[in-house]
Simulated scan of single mutants.
Amino acid sequence: MRALIQRVTRAEVTVADRLIGRIDAGLLVLVCAMQGDSDDAPAKLAARIAGLRIFRDDAGKMNRSVADIGGAVLVVSQFTLAADTRTGNRPGFSQAEAPARGKALYLDFADSLRALGLPVQTGEFGADMQVSLVNDGPVTIWMDSADRN
């Protein structure tokens, strides 16, 4: 799975002008299931993200996790993270997982974050979503479950 993690002061997602997810301080995680992802990839990625120390401590250093600050997570599916831009001007998305399994892995990822005690809001898999956020820092981190065993 691939994830783009943004530290935010607030974020929200709407579908057809209907608010479906909103958080204050925490993480906006754009996530994409990739072909070949194992069944345990969502839980492993969730644990890595939940423990990511990118929030400021009292000394101003990035030393706290989202749980440490009492933050929340907004999880939004984004198959375009699978973009292959090596050739031409039109990205290819053939490495993204098929929709049925991709949705299952996406939901497993959100559930894994919840199981770690984090408040989680989600987007709507496969929908045309509008995402608004205030990136804090800005802090944006790329993570791929294939980068670690």
Rank of each mutant, 00 (worst) to 15 (best):
G102H: 14
K61E: 11
R86I: 01
S77C: 07
G88N: 07
Q95P: 00
D111E: 15
D108K: 14
A98F: 00
R53P: 10
A96F: 11
L105W: 11
L81Y: 09
R101P: 05
L81Q: 11
A96T: 06
D57H: 02
G88P: 03
L113Q: 03
F93G: 04
G71M: 05
A98D: 13
L52Y: 02
F55K: 12
G71Y: 05
R64I: 01
Q78S: 06
G51K: 08
A96Y: 04
S77L: 13
F55M: 10
I69W: 08
M62Y: 15
D84G: 01
V66N: 04
K103Q: 15
L105T: 01
I49L: 14
E97Y: 01
G92D: 13
S94M: 02
L74E: 08
A83I: 08
S94V: 07
I54C: 12
V75Q: 13
R64K: 15
M62N: 10
P99R: 03
G92R: 14
A59W: 00
G88S: 04
V66F: 02
V76P: 09
A83Q: 14
R56F: 01
A96P: 05
F55G: 02
D111G: 13
S112T: 04
D108C: 13
M62S: 11
A59P: 00
F55Q: 07
G51Q: 02
D111C: 08
Q78N: 12
F79N: 06
A98H: 02
R53Q: 15
R114T: 14
A50W: 13
P99V: 09
R114L: 05
R64C: 04
A82E: 04
K61N: 07
A98N: 07
K103Y: 07
L107S: 12
V66I: 01
A110R: 14
E97I: 00
F93R: 06
V66K: 03
S94A: 14
A100Q: 10
L118A: 08
I54G: 00
L107N: 09
D84V: 01
G60S: 02
A72M: 08
G117E: 08
L113W: 05
P119D: 11
L74N: 13
L74M: 13
P91R: 04
T87N: 13
S77E: 08
Y106I: 09
L116Q: 15
D84M: 00
S94Y: 03
S112F: 06
N89F: 09
A59E: 15
A59N: 14
I54F: 05
D58W: 00
R56S: 02
Q78E: 15
R114V: 10
A110E: 03
L105A: 10
R101D: 12
F55H: 05
V66D: 02
D58S: 15
N89V: 11
I49F: 11
V120C: 01
L81E: 08
R101M: 12
F109Q: 11
Q121E: 15
F93A: 07
A67Q: 15
V73H: 08
F79C: 12
A96M: 09
D57T: 06
V75S: 04
L105F: 11
A100K: 06
R56W: 00
I54H: 03
A82Q: 04
N63Y: 09
S77G: 13
L52N: 01
V66Y: 03
